[in-house]
Simulated assay, not measured.
Amino acid sequence: MPTTSNRGATLHYETTGEGPTVVFVSDVGYGAWLWGWHHDAVAGPYEALVWDLRGTGESDAPAGPYSVGTLAADLEAVLADHGVGSAHLVGAGLGGMVALRYAHEYSRARTLTLYNTAASGEAVDADALDALALDNGPEASLSGAFSSQFRERATDLVSRITEWREREDATGGAFAAQAGAMTDFEAPPLYEVTVPTEVYYGLSDPAVPTDAAEALARDLPRGTGEAVEGRHCSFVEHATAVTDRLVAFLDEHADD
């Protein structure tokens, strides 16, 4: 796995496939496992790039606080190290905020796909976000991420997700620093983020209210919004339908 560094943190990333680069930016606490379904759908006609946010997986976990600006600068360091001239950004929660900030400050973003993201950290339910931490225990921490129907139906998959989380997820101070970055976020002027953007949001997401995600889609000049059944990881629970839409969106803008 290649590495680069930024502001005192070594950052690990991984790439697969060839073609236009699609970069996945994770949510608070979650490791690269979060993008396994999307990665498989994209890698091939596109280059899929997955990186560990500082505090997560194989990247360093310097003491907080963290900010979305720092995480966007980390992303710029990764893309510069890999020699990426332009990229499609896919971000969830905190990762969606990082993608927004990145698209405003740097020149490489071609499109944005945002899951369960708000334009302001004030809209995020901080208690519900904290409840997603692995420190609360595997079962309790998944209740806000996936519907009860999914957890009861896909027990083998839930067990594998728990194993992946124990290897990769941020815990303790690193989780708190990432959560603080999310709740402290304030988006740049959205009218200045002019790349094509699709916003998806879980209808039962306890951390990011639907009205906040809908407002984000409405306020972006080239934004569209789409509701998905489920909770904070609705885009994983309904990965087949969501990734089909993602690939269609990427294909539509591949020549932009």
Rank of each mutant, 00 (worst) to 15 (best):
N6S: 14
G8M: 05
G8P: 11
G8L: 09
H12Q: 06
E14H: 11
E14Q: 13
T15A: 09
T16R: 14
G17S: 08
G17Y: 09
G19M: 12
P20V: 08
P20M: 11
V28T: 14
V28W: 00
W33Q: 09
G36A: 12
G36H: 12
W37R: 12
W37M: 05
H38M: 11
H38W: 09
H39L: 11
D40L: 13
V42I: 14
A43Y: 09
P45I: 00
P45E: 10
A48W: 00
A48H: 04
V50M: 06
G57S: 03
E58C: 02
D60R: 00
D60M: 02
A61I: 12
A72K: 01
A72I: 02
E76Q: 10
A80K: 10
D81F: 01
G83V: 00
V84M: 02
L89W: 06
G91A: 04
L94K: 03
G95L: 06
V98W: 07
A99N: 10
Y102I: 08
Y102Q: 03
Y102M: 07
H104C: 02
S107N: 09
S107M: 00
A109M: 02
L112M: 05
L114S: 11
L114T: 11
T117L: 06
G121Y: 04
G121L: 08
G121N: 09
A126V: 15
L129E: 05
L129Q: 11
L134F: 11
G137L: 13
G137R: 13
P138S: 14
A140V: 13
S141E: 13
S143R: 15
A145H: 04
S148I: 09
S148N: 11
S148K: 13
R151M: 15
E152Y: 08
T155H: 08
L157M: 14
I161E: 14
E163D: 15
E163A: 15
E163P: 06
R165K: 14
T171G: 09
G173R: 08
A174S: 15
A174Y: 02
F175D: 05
A179Q: 12
A179M: 09
G180E: 05
A181F: 09
M182Y: 00
T183R: 06
D184Y: 02
E186G: 08
A187H: 03
A187S: 12
Y191S: 12
P196I: 05
P196N: 10
T197R: 05
T197C: 06
Y201M: 04
L203R: 11
D205N: 13
P209Q: 05
A212S: 08
A213L: 02
E214M: 05
A215G: 03
L216I: 10
R222V: 04
G223A: 09
G223L: 04
V228G: 04
G230K: 12
C233N: 14
V236D: 12
A239V: 06
T240K: 09
T243K: 00
V247K: 00
D255R: 04
